[in-house]
């Protein structure tokens, strides 16, 4: 089942073309990684897909009414804002706002999934950065949407929690939901995403399985780097090596 369909999406911000004719999709069961240089338009792509900024072309999510969209997709912006000293439990429960219910089940499940039960009564503003990131992911999980879109959800996490978070996304996908995320760690992207979309020069350079996408040519064009590539028992290993000039 397709959860997100973008057709010829183009975005112009302040007279600058940021995205040109992007056509991609996300289906149930997928963890789709969106990678590319800083400023290539990854965040813009997600925000335009969500209808948060004006765009030309078609986005299946932007076409929905705000209420229907809030039940179709949960969005985790890159800025991990927690404005008030609410408890972790109350923070996660904010995910129920679009449903306008106080259902405890999804909140408890989300707390459990992100191993936040011991922290449930702590003030979210007093948590470490990594704990806050986990609480915000739990908030998005509690929204119980078919699709989860996250902008750099693992930036700033320690290696264990980076892997743990990617595993949570894999779990969600295995349960029939879909995940689209941006990330900069090519190694983790190769290892944990079922599909990668590489953005370069305002458009899609490559879209496919990690091992098909992360070729020497694509890495050179998209990132100006070379990478060491090997196959381990746990899956593909990518280690960026040096810049190509």
């Amino acid at each position: 089942m397709t959860l997100l369909q973008l057709e010829n999406l183009s975005v112009t911000l302040r007279n600058r073309r940021v995205l040109s004719d992007v056509s991609v999709s996300v289906a149930a069961g997928e963890v789709v990684g969106l990678i590319g240089r800083n400023g290539v338009g990854k965040t813009t792509l997600m925000r335009a897909a969500l209808g948060l900024i004006p765009a030309s072309g078609h986005s299946s999510l932007a076409a929905m009414t705000p209420n229907a969209r809030a039940k179709a997709v949960a969005w985790m912006p890159q800025t991990r804002e927690i404005a008030w000293p609410v408890s972790v439990e109350d923070l996660v429960a904010l995910g129920r706002l679009p449903h306008d219910d106080r259902a405890r089940g999804p909140v408890e499940a989300a707390l459990r999934h992100m191993a936040l039960e011991p922290l449930r009564n702590r003030r979210a503003t007093n948590l470490s950065g990594g704990e806050q990131a986990r609480a915000l992911i739990a908030r998005a999980l509690a929204q119980e949407t078919p699709l989860l879109m996250a902008d750099e959800p693992i930036a700033g996490l320690d290696p264990e929690h980076q892997i743990a978070t990617m595993e949570v996304f894999a779990d969600i996908a295995a349960a029939g939901r879909g995940v689209m995320l941006t990330l900069h760690d090519i190694a983790l992207a190769a290892r944990h995403c079922t599909r990668l979309i590489v953005l370069s020069e305002n458009s899609v350079l490559a879209d496919g399985a990690p091992s098909d996408v992360l070729t020497e040519g694509t890495l050179a064009r998209a990132f100006s780097i070379t990478a060491y590539h090997a196959q381990s028992d746990d899956g593909p290993v990518f280690q960026p090596l040096r810049r190509v000039t």
Partner: peptide, 14 residues
Amino acid sequence: DALTLGEDAAAAMG
């Protein structure tokens, strides 16, 4: 309540 998570998250929550 939704704005606790910032403007983008609140807008995406409808």
